[in-house]
Design a protein around this nucleic acid. Sequence first.
DNA 1: ATTGACGGCTAATTTGAATTAGCTTACAAT
DNA 2: ATTGTAAGCTAATTCAAATTAGCCGTCAAT
Lengths: 205, 205
Amino acid sequence: MNTKHRILDEALTLFAQKGYANVYVGEIAEKVGIKAPSLYKHYKNKQAIFDAIIDEMNKRYEKQAGALNISGMNPSADASVYSSISEDKLVEIGTGLFLYFLHDDYTSRFRKILTIEQFHNKEFANIYTSQYVDGPISYQKMLFQFMVASGAFNHADVDLMTLQFYAPIYMLLTLCDREPDREAEALEMLEKHFRQFSKIYGDTQ
Amino acid sequence: MNTKHRILDEALTLFAQKGYANVYVGEIAEKVGIKAPSLYKHYKNKQAIFDAIIDEMNKRYEKQAGALNISGMNPSADASVYSSISEDKLVEIGTGLFLYFLHDDYTSRFRKILTIEQFHNKEFANIYTSQYVDGPISYQKMLFQFMVASGAFNHADVDLMTLQFYAPIYMLLTLCDREPDREAEALEMLEKHFRQFSKIYGDTQ
DNA sequence: ATTGACGGCTAATTTGAATTAGCTTACAAT
DNA sequence: ATTGTAAGCTAATTCAAATTAGCCGTCAAT
């Protein structure tokens, strides 16, 4: 990892903790182990660092979207796998989603920036909603639609089913972003939630 | 509303949109219709304005807590009212909670400040969690406990029941904070959620 | 061996926002 | 009528942080 990259990395961490305006370029430089003016050899100014973070994020999201078209993002492919889904499998899917969102190195820091800047910047608000509300919901909705169609799940309002499945994941995710200590508690609740969900909607008749 | 109050009010609005560091005192002054230096006749400095907002919020929360001890916050009193809760009543409670959180003039702006500052300031993280996660959940948990005890609801894991009841409210609340346009859609989903919830847990056997 | 780009440094300089100084008017109380 | 205080203003001043200037060592390529 070269200096230019390390600047991006430290800046991302600091912006995620304090927000753009509260971070001084000297602070970023210090974390990287150089002096503030040296930083300008790599980026035109503070804003350019921020912009580079956005670019990097867009690149990652595109790559991720590409990758997910093969497995995660294309539920018609997944559906066959889950057409007779077990309770344990549901726990695994849900927990996996939660832990990925929570711990992925880049994603988790960037989510905090989105959180901090969402009311300030319409662009960020849109990204936030699409990444953490509409995106997961629309993916899972498709998955559940297949599962209902295949008989793995009882017939029910799929929008509602999806909301009820995902909202606890979302709430506990934002809780753990704020209070990382509570991850174990959150995982425990989540597992109970998934099992209950499976009992309610799973076709055990 | 005198000038001192209007300063507080405009500052609250601006801090809720941009966060503390992005708001200039001149900007607050302009909204109030005075020049920046005049503002110092009312508050020692920018920080003092922010502190006054916190004080005001604490005052309101205490007052609210006091009021809720009579109705909202003491579920043993409420429980008799809801001991044989109807589906419509559940919709009403849930929707009421949601709309209060979303639109209360002071609360809604302050929640945005909490959102923006939560990763920067441990104090705010604690207030956020207690106001929008642990608080509502612990209240509703007590309510559900009484309702299970009284037979209005089927026996079930009350923690889980509460999570599943509240998480959609929370997620849609944060969505509407970010995208106020989507309130109608959120209310529609919520109503479906409450009715479904009532069918799942309500004792209709 | 020389050259030139890269990436670091220290020491300015610039910038912009917060704050202070000091003046003015209105007006309430003596 | 005089005085004191509250609340506004314009014109400084301060201060911190961003940015620029200009110097230096390293090293890879000619």
